[in-house]
Design a protein around this nucleic acid. Sequence first.
DNA 1: CGAGTGGTTGAAGAGTGTCAAACAGTGTGG
DNA 2: CCACACTGTTTGACACTCTTCAACCACTCG
Lengths: 260, 260
Amino acid sequence: MTSVNGLEDNFLRGIDFFSGLPEEDLRVFVRASHIRHYRKNEHIYHQGDESDRFFAVMGGWIKLYRETVDGEEAVPALLTTGDISGESAILYGNKTCVFSAQAVEKTCILEIRKSVLEERANANPDILRRIIISVSKKMDRLQTENEHMFHMNTAQRVACLLLRLSAHMVGNGGTFTLPYDKSIAAAQLGMKRETFSRALMRLRPMGVHVNGSEVTINNFGSLSEYCCLHCSLSAGDCTGSRCSTCTSQGCGTQLLSSRL
Amino acid sequence: MTSVNGLEDNFLRGIDFFSGLPEEDLRVFVRASHIRHYRKNEHIYHQGDESDRFFAVMGGWIKLYRETVDGEEAVPALLTTGDISGESAILYGNKTCVFSAQAVEKTCILEIRKSVLEERANANPDILRRIIISVSKKMDRLQTENEHMFHMNTAQRVACLLLRLSAHMVGNGGTFTLPYDKSIAAAQLGMKRETFSRALMRLRPMGVHVNGSEVTINNFGSLSEYCCLHCSLSAGDCTGSRCSTCTSQGCGTQLLSSRL
DNA sequence: CGAGTGGTTGAAGAGTGTCAAACAGTGTGG
DNA sequence: CCACACTGTTTGACACTCTTCAACCACTCG
């Protein structure tokens, strides 16, 4: 591999969707890659645009959103480094984007034309399997979001988000920076700005302290107990859960036995 | 095809997922089919069971649901004749069912072992494409449900459901029978029984009259205007919409122009 | 007839959304 | 340097929706 495309090559190999593909496929994808930069608030595409490419996020945050006729906005997903989007629409009938995609901060993506993915999928059906896995994971995530709207109050949903955003942190507690505006976090969770702000206040007794975009969680475990008990995911299926009384095994079996 | 499997054969050919597949594939699937009958309230499988088969509904209604530790239930989908389930878990990593499936009335399904689908998908990658299409459609549906929870009140969500349940009817209005209990409809829409009942009352001024499980809608068009304006789907993407001021083209363009 | 199931109704309360105002931080121009 | 505008956020008061809990009703089945 020439150094010209070294960046693309390294990046793609690090993403689940591409990792482990045959060298031939990787070479084609790397050669078809276009790296694009977007400023804050810039749009990557608009709802209704032709869906002729898919992309992977190399850095920054992207908001996918959809608008209703009366101007309300829904945010089905926020994408960041390593996430991919558009992989299913590629082979699926719909030729137009069902969402808009907007950079919520300085963002860099790697994009590949639809036709390249199609051609490679024809040559190597394993790519189709990877698409199924990717879409299924997104579906599970969406399903969980749905349940949260139904069973959890705003404070619990905010707690859940904070735990997922701090999933990489080690230790019992700590401080981290919100990676995007609170308004966007609120929209992602299906609530208003004001409600999000008040929900953060309500988490203070649970050991959550907020100063601007700096969030301190005293104890991940106890915050998990506050919200994860109302979620049907077993701890092993959730990146955010640190629930000690609700381990992967514990949750599952508890659920099974309580069902009857 | 022998008459022994004529039923399976005819049924499978009528379903999108199988329709148009090569004869060889269809023969294999028909031969691997098992028709099973379930009584009302009987379970087809439980959350956590091994996911080793997928099925298509031949008749009746099936409730997919998930329970949280504290006993709350979420209903991600109700399946009926022609719907399929389990097609993605087949090739996807998870070996256990993430939902429970229960017949909400006398139900008949056609089930096929996971290994058969895998073997056929290896021989004919077009099957993988069909799985992607199927999962993507479910994802869109779920996404729409999510938005409805956020943007529409209970009466509007109930109106949307009634329109979808009566989508097959011709004419400006008419009477039909709810295919399952109101409690189940309520759970499907993420609301309580009592709220569903009151929402139906609130629809009376919109020309909706209910007597037991008999529902009369005076005018599909005006009911559509009451709810579909708060939905981001264009009319062409929704089976229920009969909105005259909001045609497929109208909605889309309105949305695009109002975005800026 | 009584029990069981599914559905409706009423009163009360918690939780969110709405609207308006104020605030903090940042950049900009004079 | 200050004044100013601008954006993102917080706070308060209030209205409204939905849930909760309880009672009651309609219907079916034994």
